[in-house]
Design a protein around this nucleic acid. Structure first.
Lengths: 243, 243
DNA sequence: TTAATAGTGTCTATCAGACAGTATCTC
DNA sequence: GAGATACTGTCTGATAGACACTATTAA
């Protein structure tokens, strides 16, 4: 019987076929009521010049750390960002260089300034998700998975609050659902509903300085509550179409 | 400007640090009303002799194919198995040999015969999930993720039918929910509910040959319907505790 | 004044959960 | 017959969605 120590001493990592592991991040934000994704223009081969999700090779760090690092390199400062693993894509041939496994991450960000250029990205910018097609590698597939995850996740978690600032109005929160789902929840029912879900939002006691651009009363300001799941959930209006 | 062709010709895969990618499969089934997971006793270092999730290195195949292959090697034939990607675990140090990324999969299987011994597994067997602790590597964490996914997934998908045979009674289906959730749904309400969800189950017109072991009428036999999500969902009784 | 918006009241259909009741079967 | 189980009926409280209404504000 070989002991674990003897086994490790005689172990040759090079005996296995080379596989590279990257993280690619689907970063979503809402700008002017429209859902946007952060994309970079690839500065290097392969697919130089095409748009792609920001990402890079994993270093001596955890996968979560790698995703956070890539995101920080592209966007600079990172206030209140939610980051979660999405899925791993590793079909042979998805990268022409070699076998590359991409661990995809999903990030929800409040409105950020224009991204800084960094890493091997020729340029990074926010692109409306409707216009984000024809991406490099299999990033169209990864983006689609991220969008579906986002749409489902704001139903039963309070993560919609990750898209707005520290303090927000219920109308702003409704705007998040409208942008992510692509359909607007009923304003009155939405209002009553989010207030009734325990721990979703908390009243700050303050109101906005002025009403809406085109009239209306000042609205109360809220902050995110401490709930981690929403019960009962806010279901998408199109739920019955999913049969 | 380097063309893609020139770039690829000069590319050296060995320039990157060696990373290995494995798939590990959380295979769940129900035996005598108790949720079991398929485990192997490791025949090789590291962690020789300890229980672990079945898995192995990814070959020249997709990740889904690798998971299916590993599962087939451990269990033999695979009727009606549901298989989905769970998450990827890649912390440095999770494997003492080298950097190993494990792409974890989750499988739901109907009751299967005792697994065949194959691959590098000294022995493969079904273990009640309550007894499946102290696993090799970070497999305790992977198993916990798989269990939580399974508990959530049978709420809003018809995947509970993947645990039973082609034809089943409503009581058998209720047994799946009882085993996975750890608490029994109300029999009468469950009955009415599963029949009311469109596309969940279809009446075959047949009944069981005899009633229950300790009496009761014969029950109707059903088969899985064509719904891919359940609407409305069957929520766990403990939903309000999740706040 | 007009139009827009925040927030509330109310009605209806649906659903979850509790409970009871009947029919059918095994032992 | 006793006990267990399949399946159904019914009631109650909660909820989603539709609609209407009031109050407040910008232009």
């Amino acid at each position: 019987m070989v002991t674990e120590r003897e086994f490790l001493d005689g172990y040759d990592p090079r005996a296995y076929p080379a596989v590279a592991v990257t993280v690619d991040v689907v970063t979503l934000t809402i700008r002017d009521g429209v859902l946007h994704v952060l994309l970079v223009e690839r500065g290097e081969q392969p697919h130089a010049g095409r748009l792609a999700l920001p990402g890079g090779f994993v270093r001596e760090e955890t996968l979560d750390e790698a995703a956070l690092r890539e995101l920080a390199e592209e966007t600079g400062i990172l206030p209140r960002v939610h980051l979660e693993q999405l899925a791993t894509f590793g079909d042979p041939g998805r990268d022409p260089r070699m076998r590359v496994m991409s661990v995809a991450y999903l990030a929800f960000a409040p409105r950020l300034p224009e991204p800084t250029v960094g890493g091997d990205a020729a340029a990074a910018r926010w692109v409306p998700v409707a216009a984000a097609t024809g991406l490099a590698f299999d990033h169209d597939t990864i983006l689609a998975a991220g969008l579906e995850r986002a749409r489902a996740k704001i139903e039963y978690t309070p993560l919609a609050t990750a898209f707005v600032g520290e303090e927000f109005t219920i109308a702003q929160l409704r705007g998040v659902y409208t942008a992510v789902w692509g359909e607007e929840p009923h304003a009155g029912n939405f209002h009553r509903k989010v207030l009734s879900v325990p721990g979703f939002i908390e009243d700050t006691g303050a109101t906005t300085q002025r009403g809406g651009e085109r009239g209306g009363p000042r609205s109360k300001l809220f902050r995110a509550g401490d709930a981690r799941i929403l019960h009962p959930a806010l279901l998408r209006p199109s739920a019955e179409e999913r049969r």
